[in-house]
Amino acid sequence: MTPPVPPFTLETAIQKVRKAEDGWNSRDPNRVSLAYTVDSVWRNRSEFVTGREQIVQFLTRKWTRELEYRLIKELWAFTGDRIGVRFAYEWHDDSGQWFRSYGNENWEFNDEGLMHHRYACINDLPVQPADRLFHWPQSTRPDDHPSLSELGL
């Protein structure tokens, strides 16, 4: 199946966001990197990443530190070859402290639907285990799990 490609419609933008969420929830750096151009440019917090090899290295480090990672992405806006996303994910560190990380991403795609620019702003909020909201087995979020909006996030 051909991935959604620009120019995006509401339907294809929503599909693109969900495919990205599913990829990241796989926690497979190699799989995730294939959604980006070979020379993709990222700004993730204060870190700058260029190219698939650095994406794999970045994600490997991320998921070594961010344990039991579960992510929800939601379309915020789109036009032509760009998509704006808001997201939240929950994870814990090696001491058992849970966090909910909130953020926004701006994405830009090439004609083949591969992302060539990704700009992410993220904030981490410590949460108590009882306050966690993302409770599904580690993998793809079930279709019936509430969205960010439905969760009040």
Rank of each mutant, 00 (worst) to 15 (best):
residue 7 P to V: 14
residue 53 E to R: 09
residue 15 Q to W: 02
residue 16 K to I: 01
residue 103 G to F: 08
residue 58 F to D: 10
residue 149 S to E: 11
residue 23 G to H: 10
residue 58 F to Y: 07
residue 148 L to I: 05
residue 37 T to C: 12
residue 87 F to H: 11
residue 32 V to T: 06
residue 100 R to W: 00
residue 116 H to P: 00
residue 133 L to R: 12
residue 77 A to S: 07
residue 29 P to R: 07
residue 112 E to T: 06
residue 89 Y to K: 08
residue 102 Y to R: 11
residue 97 Q to T: 14
residue 17 V to A: 09
residue 3 P to Q: 15
residue 10 L to C: 00
residue 141 R to H: 06
residue 126 P to H: 01
residue 110 N to T: 11
residue 108 E to M: 08
residue 76 W to S: 07
residue 64 T to S: 09
residue 24 W to K: 04
residue 4 P to D: 13
residue 2 T to Q: 12
residue 23 G to F: 07
residue 110 N to M: 03
residue 35 A to H: 09
residue 22 D to Y: 11
residue 121 C to E: 08
residue 9 T to H: 10
residue 44 N to D: 13
residue 95 S to A: 12
residue 67 L to D: 02
residue 82 R to Q: 14
residue 143 D to I: 14
residue 146 P to C: 08
residue 76 W to D: 15
residue 50 T to S: 14
residue 63 W to E: 07
residue 92 H to C: 12
residue 88 A to C: 13
residue 6 P to Q: 09
residue 66 E to T: 06
residue 23 G to P: 03
residue 56 V to I: 14
residue 94 D to K: 06
residue 85 V to A: 07
residue 63 W to P: 06
residue 35 A to N: 15
residue 134 F to E: 09
residue 107 W to E: 12
residue 137 P to V: 11
residue 114 L to E: 12
residue 20 A to Y: 13
residue 84 G to I: 11
residue 16 K to L: 12
residue 26 S to C: 04
residue 135 H to Y: 04
residue 59 L to C: 01
residue 43 R to W: 07
residue 153 L to F: 13
residue 73 K to G: 05
residue 61 R to S: 06
residue 20 A to T: 12
